[in-house]
Design a protein around this nucleic acid. Structure first.
Lengths: 201, 201
DNA sequence: GGAGGCCTGTGACATTCGTCATGAGTTACC
DNA sequence: GGTAACTCATGACGAATGTCACAGGCCTCC
């Protein structure tokens, strides 16, 4: 019997996944939480074998939760279950110590199979996504370029970004310029968009 | 017995919701599709009573599917089931002829309750969301201002927007300027963002 | 028929943005 | 100790953007 922990911010999805997984005779959903920062405590309390983690959650995100889990509770493996199959997400997931990565538009049998294989100690990754990740390569952005792009995301002006990061406006313009070049964009907005899609942010 | 049609682009969510709803003794999931343009045919073929529609789908979106369904198959009511509780979505859903609107972070009982009430002929809407919609009011944008904002969304330049909409660049600048003013933004990017969040696009 | 609103366009203007050259300070690595 | 990369900054330049005033054509509504 494999003991599962579910973490997803949408209650309906959480409940529905639990209903689906409970149909499998060798699975048992022992806990379901809606926040990333509740994952570790729940995993400890219910002695989960595998944590199914969504990425987008309040508190800390699923990738960070996987990292904490790997450190504090090595007996509980993590399987990232998310909507977006972005290359950068997969990379960060594996760096965070997750044992698997499944996207939400996969068929149910694939999820069940992934859970069983992770429980057996394997690492499970969608082959197509893995190939895309290798092809994309790591982020070419420096730490500060990334910061500036993140701060620019909501549509902030240069002055606002500079104020938020305690930089001069000229410096912000320079970082933005190089980030735009590295993203192959012609705009701040386009650079933010492509960097986001690549998982660089 | 209420016959349900599920439409969601993510297969896992589709399957999981089907598993959840089948637990209710008075529900029967008779069809599940992953594209908006398959909804009507499937509803006809399986004589569904209620269609549960996600908004974001390939083909046509759930709101458009609800409109077609209301026209071609009045016996089948629509219930929008979506991640985002944006005021504009709710407004467009009700204008499209949908009978209900539930967000995906509602508890499962609320969904089941909504389905039963829609089946009984009621209109079902989350009260908090309805209040937000009334408070927000309709979009202040004119049709063209909206078009320009949509075209500007990926980070396009003025020249690209003008080319796409067959307008002069000066005209595009004028529309953008008034749209920015109406959105209370100081940027094109910020205007796109807030308009998107309000459901004006 | 007149008023008002939207669509489309032009021209001008100040501001912001993106690019480039350059330099100093820091850290890391050979 | 030297090289390289990153961080932060300044100044200057052209291009893109946002704002404003204005005008003609087309609707709709009173």
């Amino acid at each position: 019997m494999i003991r599962l922990l579910l973490a997803d911010d949408q209650e309906l999805i959480r409940t529905a996944l639990a209903a689906l997984l409970d149909l499998q005779s060798d699975f048992e959903v022992v806990a379901a939480v809606g926040r990333g920062d509740e994952v570790v405590a729940a995993a400890k309390a219910h002695e989960a074998d595998i944590a199914l983690l969504d990425i987008e959650m309040p508190g800390i995100d699923g990738l960070a939760a996987a990292a904490v889990l790997a450190k504090e509770l090595p007996g509980c493996r993590s399987l990232i279950l998310t909507t977006f199959g972005r290359p950068g997400y997969l990379r960060r997931a594996l760096e965070s110590g997750a044992s698997g990565f499944v996207v939400k538009d996969a068929p149910a049998e694939q999820l069940a199979d992934a859970i069983r294989r992770v429980a057996a100690g394997e690492r499970v990754v969608d082959p197509a996504l893995a190939a895309a990740t290798l092809a994309t390569g790591a982020s070419p952005l420096t730490a500060r370029e990334r910061d500036v792009l993140v701060a620019a995301r909501p549509g902030a002006t240069i002055a606002e970004i500079a104020e938020k990061l305690f930089l001069s406006e000229g410096t912000v313009r320079n970082y933005l310029s190089s980030a735009i070049a590295k993203a192959g964009a012609r705009n701040r907005a386009e650079a933010v968009r492509t960097a986001d899609e690549q998982g660089w942010l």
